[in-house]
C-alpha cells in the first residue's frame, strides 16, 4: 500500500456555497401605543415575495432580499444586491396571531398588536 492513499475523495468545488450577498440592517422606526407596537423598516427594491417576517420565542426577524435586474454597464453604482436583515426582541405580550405586515413604496410596516390581557386597564373602586 502506498503512502499517498487518499482518505477522502477530493472535491473541486465547495458545495452549498451560493454567491454571498451583503447583509445589512435596515433602518427602522418603532412606535408604541396602548394597543400595539408599530414598526417601519426601509427596504427599497425588495419585492413582497422576498420578505420574511418571523416571530419565534420572543424574537422578531425581518428579512428581505433585493436582487436588482441586470442592466447595462454601470457608470456609477452606489447600491447593489443586498439582504436586509434585523432581529428584535419582542415582548411576550404581542399577539402573534394578529400581526399584520404590509409593504408600500419599499417600506415594510408591521403592526404588532398587544394581547388583551396585557393592555392597561382602569380599575374602578366600588
Amino acid at each position: 500500500m502506498s503512502e499517498t492513499t487518499n482518505i477522502t475523495t477530493k472535491e473541486k468545488t465547495v458545495p452549498e456555497r451560493s454567491r454571498e450577498i451583503p447583509v445589512i440592517a435596515p433602518v427602522v422606526d418603532i412606535f408604541e401605543n396602548d394597543d400595539e407596537m408599530l414598526l417601519y423598516a426601509d427596504m427599497p427594491g425588495v419585492a413582497k415575495e422576498d420578505i420574511t417576517v418571523n416571530i419565534d420565542n420572543g424574537e422578531l426577524l425581518i428579512s428581505g432580499v433585493r436582487r436588482l435586474p441586470p442592466s447595462g454597464t454601470a457608470t456609477r453604482e452606489e447600491f447593489g444586491d443586498v439582504e436586509y436583515r434585523r432581529i428584535f426582541s419582542v415582548h411576550q405580550t404581542i399577539d402573534v396571531e394578529k400581526v399584520n405586515a404590509e409593504l408600500k413604496d419599499g417600506v415594510l410596516t408591521l403592526h404588532l398588536p398587544k394581547s388583551e390581557a396585557s393592555k392597561p386597564r382602569q380599575i374602578e373602586i366600588h
Partner: peptide, 22 residues
Amino acid sequence: PRTNFYDNGNQLELKAEVPGMS
C-alpha cells in the same frame, strides 16, 4: 439617495433608492 447609473448603448438608465416616497 443612493443612485446607480447604467449605459446600455442606446439608452441611459438611472435607479435611485427612494423608500417611503410616492
